[in-house]
Design a protein around this nucleic acid. Sequence first.
DNA 1: CAGAGGGGAGAACGATCGGTCTTTCTCTGG
DNA 2: CCAGAGAAAGACCGATCGTTCTCCCCTCTG
Lengths: 196, 196
Amino acid sequence: MTSIAEQKLHPRDRLLRTASRLFYAYGLHTVGVDRLVSEAGVTRATFYRHFPSKEDLIVAYLRSRSEEIRNGVEQVVADSRGREALLRIVNVLGEDVCSTGFRGCPFLNAAAEYPDPAHPVRVAVSDYHAWFFQVLRDRAVEAGHADPDHTARVLVLLRDGALQGGALGDPQQARATLRRAAEELLAAADRSSRSE
Amino acid sequence: MTSIAEQKLHPRDRLLRTASRLFYAYGLHTVGVDRLVSEAGVTRATFYRHFPSKEDLIVAYLRSRSEEIRNGVEQVVADSRGREALLRIVNVLGEDVCSTGFRGCPFLNAAAEYPDPAHPVRVAVSDYHAWFFQVLRDRAVEAGHADPDHTARVLVLLRDGALQGGALGDPQQARATLRRAAEELLAAADRSSRSE
DNA sequence: CAGAGGGGAGAACGATCGGTCTTTCTCTGG
DNA sequence: CCAGAGAAAGACCGATCGTTCTCCCCTCTG
């Protein structure tokens, strides 16, 4: 079951990679410990040596995804500002939607499986969302928007909607709709910021 | 466990009501048959006399939710047309987001738990989404929008995003953002339809 | 009054769940 | 060289999963 590339990785990393793949593709509750350890080429004992429980692995999975995205976005933000940065972030989102094996936002999917907002899984989701909102807000401020909070809120809303749409229907369509809606939003925000 | 109001209902209806409540509040995989039958005040045998499997109950739950919403929306559509109907639909959506016990869209939540698009559960979700899109598109045509498909797609996107936002964060905020974004979208569409 | 059938109560099925345990092997650092 | 840690292999735990079963009661209907 274990892929050749993962053979020589530390068991913990193998587990995390396998978890990322399986959890995202099949859902959190559906994937059991049995399947995780067998596909990761790891024993149950090893599993529980690195993670106190399955729940901790789920949280670790979400945190690692979060960090990946953070790195990607901060790279975008590093060499662009304001309006351009916002458009580029939206663009990256649109590309994600169209990537093969896309199955929606890992965080939204996780939240759907964990109703309790106080649950560690949900806290990880909230952290991610708060971070993303802040990034967008900062860029909106850079762009001189009159109401950066609103810009960021709508962009988050568009993101969530597009990711769901891409997972349920036609990804290309979702991407195009997201892009156009974002451009219209930014155009409106630009107008109101100039009129001040 | 069974509420007084549900005591005299037929076992099948009691099951469906209990399923609606539990599935929505706690998720599809989390709620087991044990809990369903005990809270519905029904025996396991009775359960399987009315539903071939748990999966069929899940589908029945989604279908019944779909029908409820259909009735509500068609009531709105019955005495308003075009732009006004669109705004009223968005309004109802916003109210739903703020209702107590709101936990996001039942269909989006269900889709998150069932990755396979061919699965009966996912088919029910797709059916609902297709219907909703069509309703919006028809109203956009009535409103004389230049690109009714785009209007409907963005409204669906806004809906999905707002429902997720309301489930994860502040419902009031999500409602306000949805409303404002929808108004801006419709204003833009009105402009482009007039300019034709 | 007889018989059919829906429903209640609950045992039981095999499978799987998350989690713990023992045993053996291998690698590494002192 | 040897101690000790980490990992592999796999048995094992109680609990729960979805599903099927038997048994009995109750209420219809003929």
